[in-house]
Design a protein around this nucleic acid. Structure first.
Lengths: 223, 223
DNA sequence: GCCTAACAACTCCTCAGACAAGTGCGAAAT
DNA sequence: ATTTCGCACTTGTCTGAGGAGTTGTTAGGC
């Protein structure tokens, strides 16, 4: 019987690093120690550290930038859809959002479960137009839209929506920072209209209002 | 403006190898050429080839065995979306298809590139209502719908659609086998209407006709 | 005080060469 | 015929040397 070959040093180094990343030793976006630091720390040569890092890069956990360092990009391995999303431009993502959310709003209106409606209302109340911090505003916005998709009671649509969020968050914040005359009152009003249509069991109306809302977003970005 | 740093040699080598693997140059279980062969072939050093292979190993495409070689273990990485799709029931998938394809038809009508339109027409001609083999009929159907999504010119929508196809193919074939009085003439006519709306640059019409077509499908399944 | 340019000290990227460790095959010895 | 040995070939690992890009500091000019 042949002995099971123990895993290579690079494999073990990769596993060790992955464990430390998942444990939260470095947050997403943070930089890992340099190769020359990690090598003696892990008790291996520099090229072995490099191969370990490449392995994690293949899994989508880290990303290296020449001259700068190796950065944590995610805590879980990313799938193909998020990979496509990372490359796609914002317009394409918004168009896909229109597809998902209009249908979701329509289905939500058709199904209209009282519990799901309560979640939507709750998310709507979190969306104060007065929120001054951009990040909090965008997060509250995403929470509302997710509640709508959740109300559609379709796991496929939800999975797709969740793939969008991390990609869009940054762009939305940046966009709002650029837009000087963004009317939060008007924005909030549009969300209220979506909620009303769903509450009234008006699928077509819900879809239409959702579309109008997101088309505004697309135009904002396009300029 | 700062220049976008081009991908590293190792990244490009990995992409090149991945492409050749997916193209079927080596079957699952087969051995890749040795590092010392690949290095000059790809025009890079041996360590660079090693890092490229590590990257693919991280994605789960290959696996290396010391003293023996590097072997192909899979042709595609298991996607989270496809995992969800595998569990989701057919109704949920069709609903998601409605979301994607209506918007895609609408965008296709709005953009209406002559080349994409030609592809749609070609796919439509492949869809003879006389096709007696169920599998061929469904494949021709999928080809047509994919052409529509392709015409939308949105990589995100296309990725999602492609995730649907393998999941739906089997169910569609089974469903058609059950449906005794399936009217292929009527089915073909509906596809023609979609094509016409796109050719006429009528986004709303294209979306509406697409929806009607898929709603029929949903009702067929539901019963 | 503010901005810019040059610089130094990092970082990762790539290569070449050397040797270790494991595999597989064929020839030689039994 | 079977076993053993050795050789060729594979991946694994380390090191040293530059190349290339980034970042922070510092000196100089405005």
């Amino acid at each position: 019987m042949t002995q099971m070959p123990r895993a290579s040093l690079a494999d073990r180094a990769a596993a060790l690093l992955e464990e430390r990343i998942r444990a939260g030793e470095w947050q997403v976006g943070e930089r890992l120690p340099g190769e020359t630091t990690l090598a003696p720390e892990l008790g291996v040569g520099r090229s072995t550290v490099r191969e370990a890092i490449r392995q994690l890069a293949g899994k989508g956990l880290v990303q290296s930038r020449q001259g700068s360092g190796v950065y944590v990009t995610a805590l879980e391995t990313q799938d193909e859809l998020t990979e496509v999303l990372a490359r796609a431009d914002v317009i394409a993502v918004i168009e896909a959002r229109i597809a998902i959310e209009c249908e979701a709003a329509s289905l939500a209106a058709a199904r209209r479960s009282p519990e799901a409606l309560a979640v939507i209302h709750q998310a709507l109340n979190h969306r104060h137009p007065e929120i001054d911090e951009l990040e909090a505003y965008v997060d509250a916005d995403m929470e509302f839209h997710r509640a709508v998709v959740l109300a559609a009671d379709n796991p496929v649509l939800l999975e797709m929506f969740d793939a969008f969020v991390p990609r869009l968050r940054g762009s939305m914040i940046e966009m709002l920072r650029m837009t000087v005359d963004f009317d939060t009152e008007l924005d909030h009003e549009r969300h209220q209209r979506v909620t009303e249509r769903i509450a009234e069991s008006d699928p077509e109306g819900a879809a239409r209002v959702s579309r109008d809302h997101l088309e505004v977003l697309r135009r904002e970005v396009w300029q």
